[in-house]
Design a binder for these strands. Sequence first.
DNA 1: TATTGTTATACTCTATAACTATA
DNA 2: TATAGTTATAGAGTATAACAATA
Lengths: 158, 158
Amino acid sequence: MSASPPIPPPIGNAFLLAQLGAHATRRFAERVAELDLTPPQTGLLRVIARRPGESQQALAAELGTPPTRLVALVDGLEQRGLIERRRNPKDRRLYAVHLSEKGRETMRALAKAGAAHEDELTSALSTKDREVLHELLGRIAEQHGLTPGVHPGYRSLG
Amino acid sequence: MSASPPIPPPIGNAFLLAQLGAHATRRFAERVAELDLTPPQTGLLRVIARRPGESQQALAAELGTPPTRLVALVDGLEQRGLIERRRNPKDRRLYAVHLSEKGRETMRALAKAGAAHEDELTSALSTKDREVLHELLGRIAEQHGLTPGVHPGYRSLG
DNA sequence: TATTGTTATACTCTATAACTATA
DNA sequence: TATAGTTATAGAGTATAACAATA
């Protein structure tokens, strides 16, 4: 009489989402590494592209990240010439953060990489399947209050 | 004439999966923190439950993690009395890792937490929708060669 | 006195390499 | 000499708190 091993619970949607999400994030990181970017940097670029001229505080609030973390991200992108900090002469405490022309080129390269990533990840699904999946995922994301286009990885854990 | 801001690309399935995956992982971490466990610890417990008596090397291979990382995980679970290291008298280099009775209790609590987590995450979907989602996600996971029940977070990044 | 941005610091997680004990 | 497990060490990423400049 050997003790019966516990029956493992069936793999649910929550686990599949976590598993596939980690896989997707990893593959995306590999792709953007070819552009010398990290995923957090791409997310910041995306926000700057959508809302050019915002202050670092505003960007931090949009991403849900501590302002101190943003400094390092902005530093890295600025040193590579992808973004510009412009002083606001009316209030010299603020910077207005803008994409440079090189930054806009990088955004185009990122869009290509993103499309290739999307294709690769969902290549097992038909066009119709992809639409169904998108609708289901969108409904879950909305119900949980996730900000469209903003990855929770910025959000502090406390 | 102001320069037109770049049109952000539509949010695709890949981003939604990454976003929801990170959210699911975070919520799960919060839940199992109430059992004083981290997600990596729960994944290891799950593998030990399914394959009791394996060596640490075998467990590391199954999870795809460096053996050195496993030591700390096993240490933590053993100190809390959830698992046992048993020496193999035939080859005294090996340990056989087993769940303790307390470990089996913890597995039952984990199953409850997992079910609650699953319900919460997919509460926006009908039963039928959940089945459709599960089928689609399973197909993607299989096509990308993801091991059922093993989170890619163990896998080294190299 | 409040706010923007910054620096300093510490903590968590993980990987790599060197070590031991057994075989 | 090869293998199982361990320890030591270092690196990446992020958070918290203190600080300087400006309002």
